[in-house]
Nucleic acid binder design. Sequence first.
DNA 1: TTCGGTACTCACCTCGTGGTAAGTATTGGG
DNA 2: CCCAATACTTACCACGAGGTGAGTACCGAA
Lengths: 117, 117
Amino acid sequence: MAAGARRGPYVCGIDAAMDVVSGKWKSLILWELNNYGARRFGELRRGLPGVSEKMLIQHLREMEEDGLVHREVYREVPPRVEYSLTEDGTSLNEALGPLGAWGTARRERLTIEQSGV
Amino acid sequence: MAAGARRGPYVCGIDAAMDVVSGKWKSLILWELNNYGARRFGELRRGLPGVSEKMLIQHLREMEEDGLVHREVYREVPPRVEYSLTEDGTSLNEALGPLGAWGTARRERLTIEQSGV
DNA sequence: TTCGGTACTCACCTCGTGGTAAGTATTGGG
DNA sequence: CCCAATACTTACCACGAGGTGAGTACCGAA
């Protein structure tokens, strides 16, 4: 949770990465921020159908502590907060690429099997 | 849990992949099986310090249902069961490569920061 | 006859994750 | 004067992941 090891010590790199990505919405947040650049809290909430405000904040805070996202506050009359990916967040997103491709291929495989049966 | 979608429908490929890898020991099992080829239940248990028999079985069963591991039973006097990766399991392990590399790099970064402070 | 080794199975319990719903501070608009 | 809209904060609760420890069936060895 705090900066540094959250649940470590880690057995291998996968551990360290999974620790940072595990969370129902984290990979989606990563994807959303990577696609749109900077997004406001409300935009993220509307962009992730089903997420609760509590979880969105909680995940964003953890990802900020983990150095994945940057939080920029604009002191305006209706408050404005923009979230964006840091360099680490961007590289993590890239590292998730092959996994996403594997998942997509798997989804297609399953769909074919289901329709085939 | 059952064959097909576990908690789906999935928003994207990452979802589908994370669904299959999420579980405290799954990535380690994947890694272990990938390194050693085929491993017996007891070998896996000894190779993953801290895992409980219940969780090991449970994860292996789920991974078998998900088509990641193959379970081969040899009807011998002390029973022998060998687990190995399927083609899907092997490709998943490969897809986890970049994530593992990212995690390893992150670990090194954190270690340097800690010793630096 | 009991013990050890295999690969499980089962019952029970804890605790963390995530959901729900309400409350907070600020200021402009009707 | 109250409401809307922003971005939270807080309290409470349910569920499931995961841990613990015991029991099972089989057989050979001591």
